[in-house]
Nucleic acid binder design. Structure first.
Length: 262
DNA sequence: AAATAACGCAACCGCGAGCAG
DNA sequence: ACTGCTCGCGGTTGCGTTATT
């Protein structure tokens, strides 16, 4: 396939956008939308390529963009999601309303990566078990379980659900593949520690808060949503105690390979 | 005050996925 | 099944700003 000539060869402009160009793009998109990015610059009278227009709109001109510094809470969410998803910036961005993948990528490389490295150095011995898996693995597992991949159109709460599902799939796979791994004993301290967590702050992300050390959750309204392995509650708003009862039952049944239908 | 280094961020590039013909 | 096209994503670059010497 022959690649389309680059912007410069087509006589198109590159580099920083002027306020005039911004205004033209905003006005055009407000009036006609952006059905076809490639055709848009010509229609709008801009000497830019469609890619450049798209990027400018997505990362800077969209009306729902949240400007300004990231809050501590947002940063913690990024760190947690990065542990879970890796460099899936768009997936992370879909969970942070008003933030773009580019912005998150930048903040990760300039601030958070260093911070995580520092903190990891400090708490090396307490480092949680990482969830392994490739895109291919995830897709396969999603197909097997009839689970839709994350879609940007989903609501925020559904996104949380997707995160949980993705992670529980990885964890489930790990568990199934490593049959030599014994079901860990839940110590009383786990529940007391988990229940004492401050989950009153909206969308506080936490990883590893399950009896098996491989869950992922969001706390809010004094409930804690978590998804160790295959989440029987589909990550809807359930209390921590409901989860606790379920997992205790699972452990008593002694069979974590075959997950019961709820 | 000037030079240099480090940082932050907008923008670009190349690739792959998905879709239509 | 193949081809060509568009879009979206992740990695990278380059420039302006700020901090340091």
């Amino acid at each position: 396939m022959v690649r389309a000539p680059c912007c410069e060869k087509m006589g198109l402009k590159k580099g920083p956008w002027t306020s005039e160009e911004d205004q033209i793009l905003i006005t055009h998109i407000q009036r006609f939308g952006h059905g076809n990015w490639r055709a848009l610059p010509k229609q709008a009278g801009l000497l830019r390529c469609g890619k450049s227009c798209r990027l400018r709109w997505i990362n800077y001109l969209r009306p729902d963009i949240k400007r300004g510094n990231f809050s501590r809470e947002e940063e913690e969410t990024i760190i947690s999601l990065h542990q879970l998803l890796g460099n899936k910036w768009s997936a992370i961005a879909s969970r942070l309303p008003g933030r773009t993948d580019n912005e998150i990528k930048n903040v990760w490389h300039t601030h958070l990566k260093k911070r995580v490295k520092q903190e990891a150095g400090q708490t090396l011995q307490q480092e949680p078990k990482r969830i392994k898996g490739t895109d291919q693995d995830n897709k396969k597992l999603m197909n097997v379980n009839n689970i839709d991949p994350v879609s940007p159109e989903r609501s925020y709460s559904s996104d949380i659900s997707s995160s949980c599902t993705e992670l529980s799939n990885f964890a489930l796979k790990e568990q199934c593949m490593d049959s030599s791994e014994e079901v860990p004993v839940i110590e009383d301290s786990f529940w007391s520690e988990a229940l004492s967590m401050d989950t009153s702050t909206s969308s506080t992300a936490a990883v590893e808060y399950t009896p098996f050390g491989c869950g992922f959750g969001f706390g809010y309204d004094q409930n804690y949503i978590t998804a160790p392995f295959n989440d029987p509650f589909n990550c809807t708003d359930v209390s921590y105690n409901d989860h606790r009862s379920f997992w205790l039952k699972m452990l008593q049944s002694g069979d974590l390979q075959e997950l019961p239908e709820i």
